[in-house]
Amino acid sequence: MDDRYPQLTLKPIEFERHVRSMLDAMGNSILEYRSEHREVIQGVDGEYEIDVSARFHYLGMEFLILVECKHYKNPVKRETLQALYDKMRSVGAQKCALFTTSGFQSGALRYAEIHKIATVKVVDGRSTYFTKAFGAQLIEPPPWANIPPVSGWLIDGSHFSIVSEEHGEFLERYLFTDI
Rank of each mutant, 00 (worst) to 15 (best):
Gly60Trp: 03
Ile117Cys: 07
Gly125Pro: 14
Phe170Cys: 11
Glu14Met: 07
Tyr33Leu: 00
Gln7Gly: 05
Glu140Gln: 11
Glu32Asp: 13
Ile41Asn: 12
Met88Cys: 15
His37Glu: 07
Arg89Lys: 11
Ser151Val: 00
Gly46Asp: 08
Gly107Leu: 11
Arg17Asn: 06
Tyr111Asp: 08
Val40Cys: 06
Ala54Asp: 04
Asp45Trp: 00
Asp156Glu: 07
Phe160Gln: 14
Gln42Arg: 14
Gln42Pro: 08
Ile139Pro: 08
Thr80Gly: 04
Phe170Ala: 10
Val44His: 05
Pro12Thr: 08
Phe15Ser: 10
Lys121Thr: 15
Thr119Lys: 02
Ile155Glu: 00
Leu109Gly: 09
Glu36Trp: 09
Ala54Phe: 00
His37Arg: 14
Leu81Ser: 04
Tyr85Glu: 14
Met1Trp: 00
Gly43Ser: 02
Lys121Met: 13
Gln94Thr: 13
Pro12Arg: 07
Gly46Ile: 02
Gly157Glu: 00
Gln7Arg: 15
Pro141Ala: 00
Tyr33Asp: 09
His57Phe: 08
His18Asp: 06
Glu172Met: 03
Gly152Asn: 11
Ser21Asn: 10
Ser106Gln: 15
Leu154Phe: 05
Leu10Ala: 06
Glu166Met: 13
Leu154Trp: 00
Phe15Arg: 02
Gly107Ala: 06
Ile41Arg: 03
Phe15Asn: 02
Gln82Trp: 02
Ser127Leu: 08
Lys11Pro: 02
Glu166Arg: 14
Glu39Leu: 06
Phe176Cys: 08
Glu169His: 11
Arg89Leu: 13
Ala133Glu: 15
Leu81Phe: 04
Leu64Ala: 08
Ala133Arg: 10
Met1Ser: 12
Lys132Gly: 12
Pro75Asp: 13
Leu138Glu: 12
Val52Asn: 05
Met26Lys: 08
Ser106Thr: 11
Lys87Thr: 10
Lys73Asn: 13
Val52Leu: 03
His167Trp: 01
Leu171Cys: 02
Gln42Trp: 01
Gln137Pro: 05
Ala54His: 05
Lys95Val: 01
Leu31Gly: 07
Gly157Lys: 07
Asp86Lys: 11
Phe56Glu: 02
Ile114Asn: 06
Arg126Gln: 03
Asp156Thr: 07
Lys11Met: 08
Leu154Tyr: 01
Gly107Trp: 00
Tyr72Ser: 09
Cys69Thr: 12
Ile13Asp: 09
His159Arg: 07
Ser90Lys: 14
Ile162Pro: 08
Glu62Gln: 14
Val123Cys: 06
Asp3Gln: 15
Ile155Ala: 04
Val67Ile: 15
Ala97His: 04
Ile155Trp: 00
Leu109Phe: 01
Val52Gln: 05
Thr80Ala: 15
Gly92Tyr: 04
Thr9Pro: 05
Leu171Met: 07
Val150His: 04
Asp3Phe: 12
Tyr174Gln: 07
Arg20Trp: 02
Val40Tyr: 01
Met22Ala: 12
Cys69Ala: 15
Tyr174Met: 09
Ala118Lys: 01
Glu62Phe: 00
Glu165Asn: 15
His37Ile: 01
Ile13Lys: 02
Asp45Ile: 04
Ser90Asp: 14
Lys70Ala: 11
Ser53Thr: 15
His71Ile: 01
Leu98Ala: 10
